[in-house]
């Protein structure tokens, strides 16, 4: 039996199928970081840390010889619990489409946690984020969406001057993404002008406040995954079954100069 203990759950294969499918759908809809950073893995539950290749020199301790500690970034393991009614789950075998609002909520929380660590960093876990580690002064996004192409060109030029070649991707927070999708000038969609400005995709990134232009050439940002996103069984009572969405991962910024932050004129409300 594996760590997820799915075989112990009082859940029929039909219900598992709907739970897994719904989780996958919502995760794919919400995960932005995986669309733009390198993916390393999955390496399984026993993978505990990423080797940075570094050596942190130390002194003292009475060893009598020079010594250092090998550099690693430990993986964190996230677990988002949710509950489902057993009676409702059984309806899957009768052909019902299940009410899986709890799965949707858990999948959104999990995706946002992963993306938050990737874009904004997670100091408690030892992860630098793409945005805080960028060495360039942030470029301010204008309120007027028709002016977005010029700031995106400025961001792309910043990367080029920094020696970072493309392809690039623009990860946009929800406000910028929605506003840009609707904006047009003389009937021509501004979104297309922005895409032409750096010749790459726009990605909806719910955890980004503003936008970030980054290189997707590879070797700059790395998401290392032990156990990839999975649903496990935690327990049950007479009426409900307790499940959880989990994954183990670490995130590393390998090249700080490969991203430029475009901050909103006003911060998050």
């Amino acid at each position: 039996m594996d760590l997820l203990k799915r075989a112990q759950a009082p859940i029929t294969p039909e219900a598992w199928q709907q739970i897994d499918d719904e989780a996958k759908r919502v995760l794919k809809l919400n995960l932005a970081g995986r669309q733009v950073v390198d993916f390393d893995g999955p390496h399984g539950w026993q993978f505990a840390a990423v080797n940075t290749g570094g050596l942190i020199l130390r002194t003292g301790g009475g060893l009598g010889v020079p010594w250092g500690v090998r550099g690693v970034v430990p993986l964190i393991e996230v677990r988002v619990p949710f509950e489902l009614a057993i009676m409702e789950l059984d309806n899957a075998s009768r052909g019902a489409v299940l009410d899986l609002a709890a799965v949707v909520s858990a999948a959104e929380k999990t995706a946002h946690a992963e993306d938050n660590a990737i874009f904004n960093g997670f100091k408690s876990g030892g992860f630098e984020g793409i945005i805080p580690s960028s060495p360039y002064p942030p470029i301010t996004l204008p309120d007027d969406f028709t002016k977005y192409p010029s700031v995106v060109v400025e961001a792309a030029e910043t990367l080029r001057r920094g020696g970072i070649n493309g392809p690039y991707a623009l990860a946009l927070g929800p406000d910028s993404y929605a506003g840009l999708a609707q904006a047009a000038e003389d009937g021509y969609p501004i979104r297309e002008r922005v895409e032409h400005a750096f010749d790459g995709p726009l990605v909806l990134a719910p955890q980004v406040d503003g936008a970030v232009l980054l290189s997707t050439r590879g070797g700059d940002f790395q998401l290392s995954v032990g156990q990839d996103l999975s649903i496990g069984y935690a327990g049950r009572d007479q009426e409900t079954v307790r499940l959880y969405l989990t994954e183990s991962f670490a995130f590393r910024v390998l090249e700080h100069t490969a991203a430029v932050y475009l901050k909103p004129k006003r911060g998050k409300k």
């Binding site: 799915r6 996958k24 993916f39």
Partner: peptide, 14 residues
């Protein structure tokens, strides 16, 4: 390995 949802990389071309 424990059954995962099979999300993996979502980067185009990977």
């Amino acid at each position: 390995p424990a059954p995962a949802l099979g999300i993996g990389s979502m980067k185009k071309g990977s």
